[in-house]
């Protein structure tokens, strides 16, 4: 996978969620993702950034970058925090599970919206989510 330098957005306040979302939309458009892929990415970034804001005391970072592989172009999101971590990742990935009165579709929703999804979490150490969306129809720039 050929990667380009990423762009990091710190999410420590609520309005940073919108900023991360705008950065994701701009990057997705610039690499030529389809409209629905742009919306899927923006929604995923919004979910992950909201998690950083609502579930950690200190916030975290969203890093976005264009990725290229086998003629496809995509966008990768890395959401990282040094927050409390998720005690039960399997439950957090299940629809309807919530610890803050939300709808409980954030993480499983992101997994469905994106093509690749990985989550690592350690209680007391933090959480890291890596997700990629590919645009199958896009052409590789030499």
């Amino acid at each position: 996978m050929k990667n380009e330098p990423g762009m990091m957005v710190a999410v420590t306040q609520e309005w940073h969620v919108a900023r991360a979302q705008r950065a994701a939309t701009a990057l997705a458009r610039s690499v030529g993702l389809s409209q629905v892929a742009v919306y899927s990415l923006a929604t995923s970034v919004s979910e992950l950034a909201n998690n950083l804001f609502f579930h950690t005391r200190v916030g975290g970072t969203i890093t976005l970058r264009a990725v290229r592989q086998n003629g496809s172009v995509g966008v990768e999101i890395v959401a990282e925090d040094d927050g409390p971590g998720i005690a039960d990742v399997d439950s957090a990935m299940r629809d309807g599970f919530t610890t803050n009165g939300g709808l409980g579709v954030g993480l499983p929703g992101v997994k469905r919206l994106m093509d690749e999804f990985e989550i690592e979490s350690q209680v007391g150490a933090g959480t890291r989510v890596v997700a990629v969306i590919w645009s199958a129809g896009a052409t590789l720039q030499p």
Binding site: Q35, V36, V38, Y39, S40, T43, D95, L103, V105, P108, G109, R112, L113
Partner: peptide, 11 residues
């Protein structure tokens, strides 16, 4: 329309 597609995928 794209929001509808995204929402269905979400849940």
């Amino acid at each position: 329309p794209d929001v509808a597609l995204t929402l269905i995928e979400m849940g």
